[in-house]
Amino acid sequence: MEKRTVADIMEKSFVTAAPDTSVFDLIDMMVEHNVAVIPIVRDDGALAGIVTEADLVYKKVKPHMAHYSSLLGENVYYNGMNEYEKGYQKKMACNAKELMTTDVVVASPKATVEQIAGIMVSEHLKLIPVIDNNRLVGLVTRRHILNELYKEYNG
């Protein structure tokens, strides 16, 4: 049996938003379309980033202040001010560009299902955008992988 690829199982119909989409519109889109992730795409169809439910829920949470110790009168941060700054930026974000995650793991439609499943497990990912010729062409979720396993065992 030939190995199935990402192109065989990916979602080809999905909701996207532009970088200037407001946070309120993103919330509406997620609720209306019952999705947990919205890819953010530029005018040319290239992936700019993703906004997740967690990103939007974070707006209701106070950013966690970094842990620190006082050493010789100076504060030494061991949880990193960078994490606090990221949290504060998400809290204050008004649009997708300010809220989105830009460091996104992506896949090729030619990748095998086994490869994508391995990446999802090792990186603790729920969704991976599929890129072909620098354009977003699909999405693969854990549910797609489970459906593929189901077909293998029951097919």
Rank of each mutant, 00 (worst) to 15 (best):
E2T: 08
E2H: 08
K3W: 07
R4D: 04
T5P: 01
V6Y: 15
V6T: 11
A7W: 01
A7D: 11
D8I: 08
I9Q: 10
I9A: 02
M10E: 02
F14D: 01
V15E: 03
V15L: 07
A17H: 10
A17L: 09
D20E: 14
T21H: 03
T21D: 04
T21E: 03
V23F: 00
F24R: 09
L26P: 09
D28L: 10
D28V: 00
D28C: 00
D28M: 05
M29L: 15
M29A: 12
M30Q: 00
V31E: 10
N34K: 14
N34G: 10
V35Y: 08
V37T: 13
I38P: 04
V41E: 14
R42C: 06
D43N: 05
D44I: 12
G45Y: 08
A46D: 02
A46E: 14
L47P: 02
A48W: 06
I50T: 01
V51I: 14
V51W: 13
V51D: 08
T52G: 03
T52N: 01
Y58R: 06
K59H: 04
P63L: 05
P63W: 02
M65H: 11
Y68A: 10
Y68M: 04
S69N: 03
S69C: 07
S70V: 12
L71M: 04
L71T: 01
L71P: 00
L72V: 06
G73N: 05
G73R: 12
N75H: 09
Y77Q: 13
Y78N: 13
N79L: 02
N79C: 07
G80S: 11
G80M: 13
M81S: 08
N82G: 09
N82C: 14
Y84V: 13
Y84E: 13
E85N: 09
K86E: 13
Y88Q: 14
Q89L: 15
Q89A: 15
K90I: 13
K91L: 13
K91F: 15
K91T: 07
M92E: 07
A93I: 10
A93E: 15
A93L: 04
C94R: 11
A96T: 00
A96W: 00
A96M: 11
A96Q: 04
E98C: 12
E98L: 08
E98R: 00
L99H: 06
T101H: 13
T102P: 05
A107K: 07
K110F: 03
K110T: 09
A111I: 14
T112I: 10
T112E: 01
V113W: 14
E114F: 15
E114L: 14
Q115H: 12
I116F: 11
I116A: 12
A117F: 14
A117Q: 08
G118W: 15
S122E: 15
E123K: 12
H124D: 13
H124I: 07
L125S: 00
L127W: 03
I128S: 05
I128W: 07
P129M: 05
V130K: 09
I131E: 03
D132P: 01
N133Y: 04
N133G: 08
N134R: 05
L136D: 01
L136C: 07
V137H: 12
G138Q: 15
G138E: 10
V140T: 06
V140E: 04
I145W: 03
E148L: 05
L149W: 08
K151T: 04
K151W: 02
K151R: 15
Y153V: 10
N154T: 15
G155Y: 07
